[in-house]
Amino acid sequence: MNHHVVSVKVYAAVFAALLALTLTTVAVSKLELGEFNFIVAITIAVIKATLVILFFMDVRHATDLTKLFVGAGLFWLAILLVFLLSDYFSRGWLPGPGWL
């Protein structure tokens, strides 16, 4: 079988980046940034997860079919969260009972 044997250097670089991002997210959480604390924390988590999925789980070398399945999984996760949260977050936007 011919596999992409990735060099240890690439894995070590990803590992170092993940550690650096962990330190960054802890450091940023100590600052008082209001809503930005949440945005920065989630952005860093998404970057870390993307690094793990692309490099450690080797999705960048996977077949197109596997990539499609991974993408479909994330899309369905988005459906779950967007519909759930759009319900809860939009409650109270309309006038009280008797509006309809």
Binding site: T25, K30, E32, N37, I42, I44, A45, K48, I53
Partner: peptide
């Protein structure tokens, strides 16, 4: 995959609202 789950659990449970 289990690592990725923790990557999201850590900021959500431990970091947000910490200040």
């Amino acid at each position: 995959f289990v690592d990725v789950v923790w990557i999201f659990l850590f900021p959500l449970l431990y970091l947000i609202g910490h200040t």
